Computed example of a mutant assay.
Amino acid sequence: MANQLLEFKEILRSRQISPQRKSDKQTRKLLLYLFTSTRGGFTRLRIIIHLLDKPYNTHQLAQALELDYKAVQHHLKVLEKNNLVSKIGEKYGAIYHLSNFLEVNIHTLEEAIDKLDRKINQKKVYI
């Protein structure tokens, strides 16, 4: 898992084209909470990393992540509710992609990855 986190940081760094602006305090709190302070934060991070490349529907993400469809569906709902992903379409065929809000604040995920890495090294983390 630690190696995957390092890989995620490299992916994020390679995606940053525009100069970084500092995220506001509420955005930082939201991202740190969703990815480091709740169960499933690592899974949500994996979903975001996949969505960086291209949009997916729930079934495609479940296959790519080798996770249960219902688990992926749950995490997508959490991400959508918090305006980190957007969907086009309805029901089974809905396609998910990163929201504009997350794209603008994507650099803040590096901080969440660092915190998750520290947390993993301290104690067991539930995925």
Score class of each variant (00 low, 15 high):
residue 63 Q to H: 10
residue 111 E to V: 07
residue 23 S to G: 10
residue 37 S to G: 04
residue 21 R to D: 07
residue 71 A to E: 15
residue 31 L to A: 07
residue 107 H to E: 13
residue 66 E to M: 15
residue 66 E to W: 14
residue 31 L to S: 07
residue 27 T to I: 15
residue 3 N to C: 12
residue 94 A to Q: 03
residue 78 V to M: 14
residue 104 V to M: 09
residue 102 L to G: 04
residue 30 L to P: 03
residue 66 E to Q: 15
residue 46 R to T: 01
residue 38 T to Q: 13
residue 83 N to R: 04
residue 35 F to V: 04
residue 75 H to D: 15
residue 109 L to I: 12
residue 51 L to S: 05
residue 22 K to G: 01
residue 35 F to M: 06
residue 13 R to W: 05
residue 87 K to V: 02
residue 112 A to D: 06
residue 104 V to T: 13
residue 50 H to L: 14
residue 26 Q to S: 08
residue 17 I to S: 00
residue 116 L to V: 05
residue 89 G to M: 10
residue 85 V to F: 01
residue 9 K to T: 13
residue 61 L to T: 07
residue 50 H to F: 13
residue 106 I to Y: 07
residue 100 N to K: 01
residue 103 E to A: 02
residue 53 D to W: 00
residue 122 Q to K: 01
residue 94 A to V: 00
residue 125 V to G: 02
residue 42 F to V: 07
residue 74 H to G: 04
residue 83 N to T: 04
residue 77 K to M: 10
residue 67 L to H: 14
residue 114 D to H: 08
residue 96 Y to I: 06
residue 22 K to Q: 11
residue 20 Q to I: 12
residue 64 A to C: 13
residue 109 L to P: 07
residue 42 F to N: 09
residue 8 F to E: 08
residue 77 K to Q: 12
residue 126 Y to E: 15
residue 67 L to W: 14
residue 107 H to D: 13
residue 47 I to E: 03
residue 22 K to L: 10
residue 115 K to E: 09
residue 89 G to E: 11
residue 63 Q to V: 13
residue 73 Q to F: 12
residue 67 L to P: 08
residue 114 D to V: 12
residue 13 R to D: 12
residue 48 I to R: 03
residue 125 V to K: 03
residue 22 K to H: 06
residue 32 L to A: 02
residue 50 H to I: 05
residue 75 H to G: 09
residue 101 F to V: 03
